[in-house]
Design a protein around this nucleic acid. Structure first.
Length: 339
DNA sequence: AACAGTCACAACCGCTCCAAA
DNA sequence: CTTTGGAGCGGTTGTGACTGT
C-alpha cells in the first residue's frame, strides 16, 4: 500500500517498539518536532512523519492521562457530543490529558452501546422508536453494524432562515448531513455566547448536533407548546432554535414514542416547555451566569426538565470553572464552534 | 487445551484545510 | 491566482487480550 506522505521511503508499520518510542521521545523533547516529515530522519526512525506525529500525540506526550475514563469524563463526552457530534478533537479539548483517538475509541466501544441500551440514538441523542430500536439492538447484537439508514430517517430537521429575506421558501436552505450550522449571513458559526447574547440581525440560529441531518425544509414540524416534546438534557438531541424577533429557544423536539428501556427518561420527556429569552440578551446572560454559579452539573442534567437552557447553562457553568471537574479551567472563549 | 468470538485500543488511511511558494 | 506540502481530523482496520464453549 505505502504512505502517500512518504511513499518513496521504506517505513516500518504496526506497533511501536519501546526502542522506537525512546528515540521519538528523546528527539521531540530535545529538539521539538518541528516539521513532522523530518522527524523520522532526524530521530533515526523508519517510520513516516505522520506515524510519528500520531504516536507522539496519542501516546507519548507527557501530559497524557492514561487509564480508564471516569464517569465524570464520560458524562462530559456525552454532553459535548450531543452538541458537537463526532468532532472528537473538539470533544477531547474538554478533557485534559485525553486524546481525540482515546475519546473516539471510548465512545465507540462503551458509550455508544450504553446509550443504545437506554434507547437513545448515539448519533442524534434522540430516543429511538421501539421499532427502530429493535432493529438497532439486533444490529448491535450482531456487532459491527455500520449502516445508519435507520438513524438517518429520524434525523431532526434543521433550517436557517434569514428573516430579512424571508419572503418565500427559496431563502430557506436545505442542508445535507454534515453541513455545518452557519447562520445564513454570517461567515462564522455563532458561539454559544453570541447566540445567547446578541444576534445582530434577524437570522434564525439553530444549534444542533451536526450528526443530526436535516432533510427538506418542508418537513420541518411546527411545535405548538402543548406538543413540543422537550427532552431532559440527558436524553435530548441538541435541537435549538433562536429567533431574534421572538427569542424563542426551543430544543429537543421529537415525536415521542415510549419504549421499554427508555423509561428512565420518559418522565422528563413529557415536560415540554419553551423558554422566552428576553430581547435584552446581554443582561439576561449576565443574570443567568449568576444563577448558574450554584448549579451542580449533575443536577442540571439529572433534574432539569427542559433542555432549552440546561445545555447552555451546563456549558456556561463548565466554562466558568464552576464545574466539579475543577482540574479544568474553562474560559468562555473556550467553547466555540470551530469548524 | 484449543478454538472462536468479542472487546478495547493502537495505528493507519484518506480526506480537508491552510499557509507558503 | 494556482500549486504544493504539512498538519489535523474522523473513519476504519488491525491486533492482542480476554472470555466462553
Amino acid at each position: 500500500m505505502g504512505h502517500r506522505c512518504c511513499g518513496k521511503h521504506k517505513v516500518k508499520r504496526g506497533l511501536w517498539s519501546p526502542e522506537e518510542d525512546d528515540k521519538l521521545i528523546k528527539h521531540v523533547t530535545t529538539h521539538g518536532h518541528g516539521s513532522w516529515s523530518s522527524v523520522p530522519k532526524n530521530a533515526g526512525l523508519e517510520r513516516c512523519g505522520k506515524s510519528c506525529r500520531l504516536r507522539w500525540i496519542n501516546y507519548l506526550r507527557p501530559e497524557l492521562k492514561r487509564g480508564s475514563f471516569t464517569s465524570e469524563e464520560e458524562q462530559i463526552i456525552i454532553d459535548v457530543h450531543r452538541i458537537l457530534g463526532n468532532r472528537w478533537a473538539q470533544i477531547a479539548k474538554h478533557l485534559p490529558g485525553r486524546t481525540d483517538n482515546e475519546v473516539k475509541n471510548f465512545w465507540n466501544s462503551c458509550i455508544k452501546k450504553k446509550l443504545m441500551s437506554q434507547g437513545l440514538d448515539p448519533q442524534t441523542h434522540n430516543l429511538i422508536s421501539s421499532h427502530k430500536r429493535s432493529v438497532a439492538s439486533n444490529k448491535t447484537a450482531g456487532s459491527n453494524a455500520k449502516t445508519q439508514s435507520h438513524i438517518d430517517q429520524e434525523r431532526p430537521v434543521f433550517t436557517v432562515n434569514n428573516m430579512s429575506q424571508k419572503t418565500d421558501s427559496s431563502t430557506e436552505m436545505n442542508y445535507s448531513m454534515s453541513t455545518p450550522i452557519v447562520p445564513l449571513l454570517n461567515a462564522q458559526p455563532p458561539t454559544v455566547q453570541s447566540m445567547m447574547a446578541s444576534p445582530t440581525n434577524n437570522n434564525h440560529y439553530l444549534v444542533q448536533n451536526p450528526n443530526s441531518g436535516w432533510n427538506n425544509v418542508s418537513d420541518i414540524p411546527t411545535f405548538p407548546d402543548s406538543t413540543l416534546n422537550m427532552s431532559s438534557a440527558s436524553s435530548s438531541s441538541m435541537f435549538g432554535h433562536m429567533d431574534d424577533s421572538n427569542c424563542i429557544w426551543a430544543a429537543g423536539a421529537e415525536a415521542y414514542v415510549p419504549a421499554p428501556g427508555a423509561m428512565e427518561v420518559q418522565g422528563e420527556q413529557s415536560k415540554g416547555q419553551v423558554v422566552q429569552v428576553h430581547q435584552e440578551k446581554e443582561k439576561l446572560l449576565e443574570m443567568e451566569m449568576e444563577a448558574m454559579q450554584d448549579m451542580e452539573i449533575a443536577a442540571s442534567f439529572d433534574q432539569c426538565s427542559s433542555f432549552d437552557y440546561s445545555l447552555v447553562e451546563y456549558y456556561s457553568t463548565m466554562m466558568s470553572g464552576v464545574a466539579p471537574h475543577d482540574h479544568v479551567n474553562y474560559s468562555a472563549a473556550d467553547f466555540t464552534w470551530n469548524f
